[in-house]
Computed example of a mutant assay.
Amino acid sequence: MLCLGLETSCDETAVALCEDGRPVAEKLASQIDVHALFGGVVPELASREHLRRMGPLLRTLFADSGLTLDEVDAVAVARGPGLLGSLLIGLATAKGLALGAGKPLIGVDHLHAHLMAATIGREVPYPALGLLVSGGHTQIMLLRSALDIAVLGRTVDDAAGEAFDKAAKSLNLPYPGGIYIDVLGRDIEADHTLFPRPFLDNHHLDFSFSGLKTAVATYVAAHGELRLPVMPSPGGAIDPSAWPMPLRRVCAALNFAIADTLRVKMERALDSRDTGPVRALLAAGGVAANSRIRGMLTELAARRGLPLFLPRPELCADNATMIAATGCLLGRAGLTHGLDCDAVPRGRRVPWDYREGPPLGRPSVDRRPGPQ
């Protein structure tokens, strides 16, 4: 089954083709330079950029892959959660392509797709325990199968990625700040007492990172020398040795506080009777690219004797390959949508409202690019 995937949930415009879940080609246009001027994503600008870039990306995708829309078996699109204006651009494009070419439409839960990014090209033993960490979401999920997922715990306010980005902003680091916090805090022994590990004095699996965000901002305000007088230009390689050591220690302490909070909750989930025995661990989302968090998960999986599945770093951030790959899973199961499929903004649960029908696709053809 050949699936076209479209991703416009936030500030990345991306289109991709997957053959039975295997990546064939992807084209992506980042908006980081646009939003860096404002220190965060401006929703109206994001939707306008999606509208401007979608057409050229699609034309380039088909031209470079040598494939056509006629060869596509289904059109998959991120329907939410995300920025409503951005989602509507992708959804309208997908509906137009599906209607014009007579192809089935598949609306994809953006969070489901993130989890599936960790499974691309791999056989995952289920049930598995999943950790989703991004700028807008922090969740622990039980995956009974690739299409049967239950949320065990979620953030009650801010997500882990929000804490990273707001801490970076308080230090006057460029947007997006999470990568700076990660790189500058590497290879430094973290002060485990500098910042609290939030929301652990309980027995459940929910998260709260608003207090940690406040603790970092308060600490930086009390130590004004930590805040850079001039924001460095974004982009390019980050050389940690060129940065002040006090600032790097703050970054290391924050990395530890977030990673260890995630570890405690994951351990709690593994030991819970409600979770039951699991056969694998996986993690996904933009913050899953953080080196401290990846190291924590690697150590946890080894200690528990479980295989660990992590996406390649480029598949941690928003991308269309994960949308197309998840579309293949859903299409092979005969799950599609009508043209009345709606966008679901952040803060609302994406419904499981698929239409059931015969499996989509045709005999598999390996369309992956050959050796370069």
Rank of each mutant, 00 (worst) to 15 (best):
C3H: 03
G5K: 00
E7N: 00
A14L: 04
C18A: 15
G21C: 09
R22G: 00
K27A: 04
K27I: 13
L28S: 00
L28W: 04
I32Q: 07
V34M: 04
H35L: 06
L37W: 03
G39Q: 00
V41C: 03
V42Y: 12
E44D: 11
A46K: 02
G55L: 03
L57M: 09
D64A: 02
T68R: 10
V75I: 04
V75K: 10
G82F: 11
G82E: 02
G85A: 09
L88C: 09
G90Q: 01
K95D: 06
K95V: 01
G100F: 09
V108D: 09
L111T: 05
L115M: 14
L115Q: 02
A117T: 07
R122H: 14
P125E: 14
P127F: 10
L129C: 05
L129T: 13
L131E: 01
L142S: 10
L147A: 06
A150L: 03
R154Q: 12
T155V: 12
A159P: 01
A160K: 15
G161S: 07
A163T: 13
A168Y: 02
K169M: 06
S170L: 02
N172L: 00
L173Y: 12
P174Q: 11
P174F: 06
Y180T: 05
I181N: 00
E189F: 01
E189V: 08
D191G: 15
R197K: 10
D201M: 12
D201L: 15
L205V: 08
S208R: 03
S208C: 09
A215S: 15
Y219G: 04
A222R: 15
A222H: 12
L226M: 09
R227H: 02
L228K: 00
S233P: 01
P244V: 11
M245G: 15
L247Y: 01
A257S: 14
A269V: 06
G285S: 05
I293T: 11
R303C: 15
G305A: 14
P311G: 07
R312S: 13
P313F: 08
C316G: 10
D318H: 01
M322C: 13
T326K: 08
R332S: 10
A333E: 10
H337C: 02
L339E: 04
G347M: 10
R349P: 13
W352G: 03
Y354A: 03
E356I: 13
P359A: 15
L360H: 05
S364I: 13
V365F: 06
Q372W: 07
